[in-house]
Simulated assay, not measured.
Amino acid sequence: MADTRSTAGIATELLIDGFGRIREGVPAVVDGLSADELLWRPDRDANHIAWLVWHLTRQQDEQLSHLGHVPSVWRSGEWAERFDLPYPVDAHGYGMTSAEVGAFALTDPSLLIGYHDAVNELTLRVVRGLSADDYATVIDRNWDPPVTVSVRLVSVLDDAAKHLGQAQYVRGMVRRRT
């Protein structure tokens, strides 16, 4: 039997699955840890779990809101106010110094999961709304080859997966450090 799904349909399914894996991993890496454990750094220059989860979610939020031509959840959902971080509202973690990572404060671990849930909803709306033409649209000509929507989506997913893996590794260190 021939597969009658379109290439765009298959791409959408793959992206939904990939982002769904990130969505499943975020609570698994946060659950059961205290705010202090989520903020623990293996050394003074390392990233902690809370920052890694926040950063992977912020970059996904900014990139997907841009692709969907909608406001970021960080701003529209008042997550910036809820987190009350010592960063500019448009900060997403890229290029932050060790001191800036160290300034990240968290009193309620459920914020990380709630924010990621909201960003995942945005992600699903945007990805489900893409057409075959949208996937091929060039959005950044500053690269060679120019970046298309499909390439950007894979880049966002790749970044999220890497940071989730880092957070999982640090979680293992937190659990074994006593």
Rank of each mutant, 00 (worst) to 15 (best):
M1Y: 14
M1H: 13
M1D: 13
M1K: 09
A2R: 14
D3Q: 13
R5I: 04
R5N: 14
S6I: 04
T7L: 15
I10H: 14
A11T: 14
A11Q: 15
E13R: 11
L14Y: 10
L14K: 10
L14T: 09
L15E: 01
I16K: 13
I16H: 11
G18A: 15
G18P: 03
G20D: 08
R23W: 02
E24I: 00
V26F: 11
P27F: 08
A28Q: 12
A28G: 03
V29G: 05
V29Q: 06
S34C: 07
S34G: 13
S34R: 08
D36W: 03
D36Y: 03
L39V: 05
D43K: 09
R44S: 08
D45Q: 09
N47Y: 07
A50P: 13
A50K: 08
L52C: 11
L52D: 06
L52N: 10
L52W: 02
W54Q: 10
R58S: 02
Q59N: 12
Q59H: 09
Q59W: 12
D61H: 03
L64N: 00
S65V: 05
H66F: 14
H69S: 09
H69G: 05
P71R: 00
S72N: 00
W74I: 05
W74C: 09
R75G: 00
W79L: 03
W79E: 00
A80P: 00
A80I: 03
A80F: 10
R82M: 05
P88G: 07
P88N: 01
V89E: 12
D90I: 00
H92D: 07
G93K: 09
G95R: 12
M96S: 10
M96G: 01
S98T: 09
E100D: 13
V101Q: 02
V101H: 03
G102H: 07
G102D: 15
A103T: 09
A103L: 07
F104I: 06
A105Y: 04
L106I: 08
T107N: 12
P109N: 11
S110M: 09
S110R: 13
L112P: 10
I113F: 07
I113S: 11
G114R: 08
G114A: 10
Y115N: 08
H116M: 00
D117I: 01
D117S: 07
A118P: 01
E121L: 10
T123F: 01
V126K: 05
V126M: 03
V126Q: 01
V127C: 09
V127K: 03
G129A: 11
L130V: 06
S131E: 07
D134W: 11
T137S: 14
I139R: 10
D140V: 10
D140G: 12
D140S: 13
R141F: 04
R141T: 15
R141N: 12
N142V: 07
W143P: 05
W143H: 15
P146S: 14
V147K: 11
T148A: 06
T148V: 01
S150P: 00
S150V: 09
S150N: 10
V151C: 03
R152P: 02
R152D: 06
R152Q: 13
R152C: 07
S155T: 13
D158H: 15
A161L: 12
A161R: 10
K162H: 13
K162W: 14
K162Q: 14
L164I: 04
L164A: 01
L164F: 07
G165F: 08
A167H: 02
Q168N: 11
Q168H: 09
V170Y: 05
R171F: 11
G172E: 08
G172I: 02
M173G: 07
V174W: 04
R175E: 13
R175V: 15
R177E: 07
